[in-house]
Design a protein around this nucleic acid. Structure first.
Lengths: 193, 193
DNA sequence: CGCCGAGTTGAACTGAATCAAGAAACGTGG
DNA sequence: CCACGTTTCTTGATTCAGTTCAACTCGGCG
């Protein structure tokens, strides 16, 4: 499957566009590729794209008092952007780092805005995407509020064991809101040998 | 200003509707009032409304292991709903409790859906509201992830001193993710006598 | 008055952080 | 393809922020 086909599929899961709408939309897309360690966005930049990961994985993090805090990971088949900055047009407070080499489809913000204005269905997809993103954030927030470090690890392990396996202790711990040493200890308790 | 006028103002801050659109929209609204201690939604119910608080205040919380965790507060002039449930149509995991007597404007979900389908501008407002809600959640999540209990209190105090003053220690502490005793101690340190 | 829930204060405890050191994995250049 | 330096992971010892449990204060209200 090509980049565009897998992207189309991801979009159509939200809402299927007409052939003419898709034609118009897809003509504005930009194909790019990145190397592991590259950044899609850095702190201070205003986000100008939504990226679809045809291949690759990303980490969305911010720095406070010199420490990194990971907000989210994204993988093959998912969309990623510094959503806060894209929406507000303020400089991003987060970095998006490539965890591996990646092929992406980039939607320029300016065309996205135009598409929202031109097509009711475009606006609809925008709404559904925003709602979906809201749900992701709320779930994470509720876990941070009500669960202990160990409980958060177990919850994530059950929900997404593949993620837990492939992400480094350093990155995973900063996602769970704990120190690497603590995650290492928690992990030992839950080792399945 | 009447209920509907203040609600219209709140909506138009997102995007102004045409007179005809507003006419159609507002004809579907339901005015209700509640007493302190009433619930807009309880855990287990599917949310069927978005409420605009013309007057009153609410607390959005969930219970885990018998303990209450507060996700959000809403005040006069704001919209409130169990958004997760409204979007997903799954039973709500949260309660919305009235902290004082309230007059509200309720938008029935079924009419909202119809409005989204009928008007491009309706869909747009839906998108902008979802984006706004996303931003609220992300900010809170980032604070929970990177700040200590005391730092979260100070941040909230600076951002919204009025809220800190009028919400009880019990509710405020469960919003900050700490115990009432801890908040009481933190508060003493920051007393401005 | 006297009760009752909310808030405060104190003392002991604990989950997770911090500090420190060693072991394993990684990648880069010779 | 190996050697070396660098980063990541683990483990142990200690510390500390915040919890827990318990007792006391205060203001409102029947």
């Amino acid at each position: 499957m090509t980049n565009l086909q897998s992207f189309q599929q991801a979009i159509y899961k939200f809402y299927p566009l007409s052939p003419a709408e898709w034609e118009d939309f897809s003509s504005k897309l930009v194909l790019k590729n990145y190397k592991k360690g590259d950044f899609l966005v850095r702190e201070g930049q205003v986000e100008n794209f939504i990226y679809f990961l045809h291949k690759g994985a990303t980490r969305n993090y911010f720095i406070r008092d010199g420490k990194e805090f990971t907000v989210d990971f994204h993988f093959e088949g998912e969309m990623v952007t510094a959503y806060y900055s894209l929406i507000t047009r303020e400089p991003s407070t987060t970095f998006i780092e490539l965890l591996e080499d990646a092929d992406v489809v980039a939607i320029p913000f300016r065309f996205l805005q135009e598409f929202y204005g031109k097509y009711h269905h475009g606006e609809r997809i925008g709404r559904l995407v925003a709602e979906y993103q809201y749900v992701r954030r709320l779930k994470k927030e509720m876990e941070l509020l009500s669960l202990t470090a160990e409980e958060r690890y177990v919850a994530l392990l059950q929900r997404n064991p593949a993620l837990v396996q492939q992400i480094s202790v350093k990155h995973l711990s900063s996602f769970l809101g704990i120190q690497p040493e603590s995650l290492s200890r928690i992990r030992k308790l839950h080792a399945r040998n």
